[in-house]
Structures are given as C-alpha cells and as structure tokens.
Design a protein around this nucleic acid. Structure first.
Lengths: 193, 193
DNA sequence: TTGACAGGCACGAACGGTCGTGCTATTTTA
DNA sequence: TAAAATAGCACGACCGTTCGTGCCTGTCAA
C-alpha cells in the first residue's frame, strides 16, 4: 500500500519540477522516467495516460500551493499583514520552482487547448481567485480596507502584481523586481485603505 | 525576387497565428505546411531550421507589434492620452491573436530554455520596456506626471496590468476584465499625477 | 512449516506516428 | 535559360501507448 504511493510521489515531485521548466505539454514521459530512474512503462502504469499525469501534477501542485502559500498566510492576523504574507509566500513559491509558478506557465500553455487538463487548471485558478477575494473581505472586516471596496477588483489588482513579478523575475532576471513589487503593493494597499 | 517574399510572409502570418495558439515550441513545421498548402520541405527551405523560423516569427511579430501598438500611440499627444491609447492598442493586439500576445506566451515558454530564440525574445522585451519608460518620461515632460517619478517602476506597473488583463481575458474569459483593467489604470495614472 | 497462489509493481521490447532535417528532382519565375 | 522556389522522399530520433513477463510480498491451505 505504501510502496506505490511513495514512487508516485517521487514521480509527481520530479514531474512538477519538469513541468514548471518546460510546461505541462512539453514535459515527456520518457525523460521523466529517466529522471526518476524508472522505465517509461513502469512510470506510465501509475497514470495510464499523459493527460492523467498532467492532471495529477496539477493537483499535487495545488496541495503544495495551499500548504506553502495560502495556509501560512491565513495564520497571520486578517488584513494587511495577511495579504503581505500571501504575496511573500507566493514569491517564494514561484522562485522555488526553477521554471516559475506552474499555474502561470500552464495558464499560458492551455489558454487555447481545450480538454480535461484545462478544466482542472481553471478550477484551481478559480479557487485561487476565491482566496484572494476572501483576503480582501477579511481585510475589510478587520478595518484595514474601506467598506465599499470591490473584492473582485482587488483580486485582479493583486494577481496582476504577482504576474508582473513573475515575468520580471523569471525572464528578465531584473534585480530591482522585488523593489518594484513592494512599491506597487504599498500603493495598492494604500488605495484600498 | 518577389514570389519568395510573398510566400514567406504568408508562412510567417500563419506561423504567428499558430505560435500564438500553441506556443513557439509546440508549433510544428508539418502542420504549418499543411496550413499554408505547402510541402514540409518547401516551407523548410525558407528558414533552414526551426530555430530560425521561430526567430523570424518573433521578428515579424515585433514589426506588427510596433506598427499596430506603439506607433499609433505615438501619434497621440504625449502624456496620459498616449498611455491610454497604448493600453487600448495592446488589448486589441492580444485579443486579435487567438492565442493571445505571442510575447507573453513565449516569455513563459522560454523563461527556462536558453538559446537563440530566448535571446531574440529578451531583446524584444527590452525594447518594449524601453517604450514604456519613454512614455512615462514624455508624460512627465508634458506635465501629466510628477517630475520625481521612477520610469522603471512605471514600466513594471503598466506591464503588470497588461499581464493581468491577458490572463483574465484569455484563460478565465472574465467578462468584467475590461472594467477591472480600466479601474486599475485610472488609479495607476492618478498615482503618478 | 511449507507450497501454491494472488496482487502490486516495474521492466524491456515493440507499435504506429510525428518530429526536424537532409538530399535530389522538378517546376516556376524573372 | 539561369536561378529561385517548391516538391518528393528518406533518415534517425523520440513521442505516447500497449503488451507480455517477472520479481517481490503477503495470504492461506495442507
């Protein structure tokens, strides 16, 4: 009962790393097998199709994301401290994976590729936006934000900021990225006060 | 001398479309040939390698981008009107291509794939950020922005906004996207006033 | 205590396809 | 008619997937 689970987890770990670098579509089963010292067929047997593998990687990433980005932020006091923690955690998350946040690269990869993988991705992005909206709402209740703010708008604003950080950091390797993000975040929070 | 150019342009047009949908890496020569009613080898002879094809598509996109996004904006009066025009043009540009802005998807595709294509992409992104910085500077000189603003910061802020729009529009198909972007842009411009 | 059996797990080999890329003709254009 | 453009064909590599097989571990009957 445990041996199979263990192997699967090893595969998912390596798969997440590879998918983050090359994209979910360009990750290949053969190379992933080599990476995990397995045979292609042995690895394949755990998932029965590439699409399933992609979906399971997405789920696995979702769990990891919740554990390392969202949950720790929720332990901070509601409002601005929580939002700042979330942004910091997200930055760490996307920096840790060598190819950046897998949800960002997958969003680009699957924006025009209908199918089960896209649907799974969409569901996860909706969950994420929901977390953002909730953060805004709790900041309202905590008194850090005005009472008349638009939580949807806040989600858009904050996510845009993260996407900017992601591109600057990953592609341009801009050393000022952190600073830019901090300034933009300060201004954003100020505007919702 | 002209027939070759014509064919090449046809190929680049179709290639840009395909690359925008599938990414520069997942676009294949065989399918592109079918799309343009050519043989694989006949098409191939125009570029001599896939990497060259990718680079030429990027250059082609760069020209188109300059013509349809940057240049028309420069015809507006410097300052806020020019910046608003730029954002509108960019939105149109990324909506026109069925897979979204090719530079965004390529950035995600090649953030971790060293080589000539990545270098070409980086050069183009630098040019783009330069345009953004110049827009900020001319807005300063026109009196629409304060004199002490950071043009690099402005480029980061504005590009983040466009990236947010891009993801919302392409992946989530959110009907409120335009509104969100307008609100965020208004606030951004206000902050630089 | 042993031997037959079952299930989970991984393997190598092979399948039909598609990939990018050479070569050599043939057709089209200037 | 020379040159440019396109087609035909073949190649080696790799793709996702299937299949038959064998090892290991645990269960249960004798």
């Amino acid at each position: 009962m445990t041996k199979g689970r263990d192997t699967k987890n090893t595969i998912l770990n390596a798969g997440l790393e590879m998918a983050s670098q090359l994209g979910l579509e360009n990750m290949t089963i053969g190379v992933l097998a080599k990476e995990t010292n397995m045979s292609k067929s042995g690895l394949f047997a755990h998932f029965n199709s590439k699409v399933n593998l992609q979906i399971e990687i997405l789920k696995y990433a979702g769990q990891l994301f919740a554990e390392s980005v969202v949950v720790p932020a929720l332990k901070k006091e509601a409002g601005i401290p929580r939002i700042r923690a979330l942004v910091g955690n997200w930055d760490d998350w996307s920096s840790k994976l060598s190819g950046g946040c897998i949800f960002v690269s997958a969003s680009s990869d699957f924006s025009d590729r209908p199918g089960k993988v896209r649907e799974a991705l969409l569901r996860q992005q909706e969950t994420w936006l929901d977390s953002l909206r909730r953060m805004a709402k709790s900041a309202m209740l905590a008194g850090d934000f005005r009472k008349d703010i638009d939580c949807d708008q806040f989600a858009f604003d904050l996510y845009s900021l993260l996407l900017g950080f992601h591109l600057y950091y990953k592609l341009l390797n801009d050393s000022e990225t952190k600073k830019h993000q901090k300034i933009a975040l300060d201004r954003l929070l100020d505007n919702y006060k």
